[in-house]
Write a protein that binds this DNA or RNA. Sequence first.
DNA 1: CTTCTACTTTAGACTGATTATAAACTGATA
DNA 2: TATCAGTTTATAATCAGTCTAAAGTAGAAG
Lengths: 138, 138
Amino acid sequence: MKNQDFINKLRNSGLRPTKQRIKICEALFNTEKTFHFTVNDLAKMMQKNFNEKISLATVYNTLHAFKKKGYVKEISLGNDKSYFDTNISSHHHFYDTKTNELIDIDSSKIELKNIPNPPKGKSIKEIDVVINVENDSQ
Amino acid sequence: MKNQDFINKLRNSGLRPTKQRIKICEALFNTEKTFHFTVNDLAKMMQKNFNEKISLATVYNTLHAFKKKGYVKEISLGNDKSYFDTNISSHHHFYDTKTNELIDIDSSKIELKNIPNPPKGKSIKEIDVVINVENDSQ
DNA sequence: CTTCTACTTTAGACTGATTATAAACTGATA
DNA sequence: TATCAGTTTATAATCAGTCTAAAGTAGAAG
Ligand SMILES: [Mn+2]
Ligand SMILES: [Mn+2]
Ligand SMILES: [Zn+2]
Ligand SMILES: [Zn+2]
């Protein structure tokens, strides 16, 4: 995917293709594999790998905008900070509670049976399965 | 359960039965049903319902001590703050993302099939299923 | 090309949950 | 009763995330 594609993608979804947003698109979507990251991870990555100092506020703004457009997902865990995910397919995670490492599990890999009915008046939006793991002691 | 039972419970697990811990035990474990709460919820509850002003730091200390002893569980969600749970059985949750309300789902209600093997060298500690729900619009 | 304006970016202030500190207090033991 | 490690507490510190208001910029219009 080239620069111009991101510009179109942004414009088509009503986001002005600013220098910062385009660079962040490159960082997030010009990759072999999807990945998980924190806001700080991304801010540092932009600086180091893309030579682009983007203010933290803008990184937050952009990620929230991208999330609203469905370009990234946000994941919350036992941690204090939240993670973003460029894998936007419905999927689950292994989560290493010691290292904070996240590993995808394809949605089709786990079968959920007998999901109970939601409380009256509410409907299910999404189901998150987190399998907490830890290094074998010894 | 009476006061003396909590004193024994605390002593048996190596926690000094202080006035604050005993009162918190009463608040948490002298109930019909288990429940979910935040640190602030509990601090306020102690003041209002138990006429016991306990410093926030102590509430944190106590909850973390109780968690380590397995008397409560901690639940992390998309929220900024974390929740505690007096239901220490292995179970899952409905989570209303708008109201932050948590509702228990008995572990036996949901059947998880084909759980993939954890990454090499890691083993599964716990599986959390969160079913995000929302009020039916209209 | 220049002007105009709404949308963006930004530094820095602010918030709110949680943790750290260090002094005062207290349960257990002798 | 004296002693002391474990506890409580007020308060400061931390840290992710949000807010603000000023400066910058993309895009439209002339
Ligand atoms: Mn967020
Ligand atoms: Mn905690
Ligand atoms: Zn993922
Ligand atoms: Zn629960």
